[in-house]
């Protein structure tokens, strides 16, 4: 595994330990930080997130990180709420988000149980971050809001409606599922990100 400086953005929006442990299992000790210089100088940046969108955006604002993230030049991986906050806006708390991906995040209709919680299969996989992942393989999802399919979609998933399971635009990567909690498939995806 490539030795590198991976920084997990710490903005008090949960679940940072799980992500940290996942990299540690791969022999990398990530730095957890909210310091702009530390984040800017990272080889790679992880933008995690669990919780409510407007609360999380507020937290980014309080930590003065709103202008920094869209401006990053190294590979950035948004996970779950992190991915949703990389979009234009979200219906959750009618929140304006970071605007990296030109799409609005929508809430699932109540046709089936919400949140979409559990293991689901990926489809329409487009290499890069998802190199070596087969359409039959499962990743772990927990979310009530979804990103519709767009040009930047690099994997789709289907629950109530087809939605974006992963996105990529330039150096920005994002996944709705939790690679850190997706067993061996998740490990492969994190390794792909490290090797980008």
């Amino acid at each position: 595994m490539k030795k590198q400086n991976i920084v997990i953005i710490d903005y008090d929006a949960g679940n940072i330990q799980s992500v940290k442990y996942a990299f540690e299992r791969l022999g990398i000790t990530p730095i957890v930080s909210k310091d702009k210089e530390v984040i800017r100088n990272a080889d790679k940046v992880i933008f995690p997130g669990v919780g409510e969108a407007s609360w999380a955006m507020n937290s980014l604002k309080e930590n003065d990180l709103i202008d920094l993230i869209p401006d990053l030049k190294q590979p950035v991986l948004g996970i779950c709420l992190g991915m949703q906050l990389m979009c234009e806006s979200t219906e959750e708390g009618n929140t304006k988000a970071l605007g990296i991906f030109p799409v609005s995040v929508k809430r699932f209709s109540n046709e089936q149980k919400v949140p979409h919680m559990g293991w689901n299969q990926l489809d329409d996989l487009k290499g890069g971050l998802l190199n070596g992942i087969k359409p039959s393989e499962f990743t772990y999802f927990v979310h009530s809001y979804y990103v519709p399919l767009i040009e930047e979609t690099i994997a789709s998933c289907d629950y109530i409606v087809p939605f974006s399971a992963a996105l990529q635009k330039d150096n920005f990567y994002a996944c709705q599922f939790h690679p850190e909690k997706s067993g061996d498939v998740g490990v492969k995806i994190l390794k792909n990100f490290i090797n980008l």
């Binding site: 949960g14 996942a22 299992r25 939790h178 909690k181 067993g183």
Partner: peptide, 25 residues
């Protein structure tokens, strides 16, 4: 949690948001 790459739920004796914060951490 260090060993586990699947979802992990913990319960027992949780009565405050502080308890939850400690376990999530």
């Amino acid at each position: 949690a260090r060993e586990l790459n699947i979802p992990f739920t913990v319960g027992g004796g949780i009565s405050t948001p502080e308890d939850v914060g400690v376990l999530l951490n």
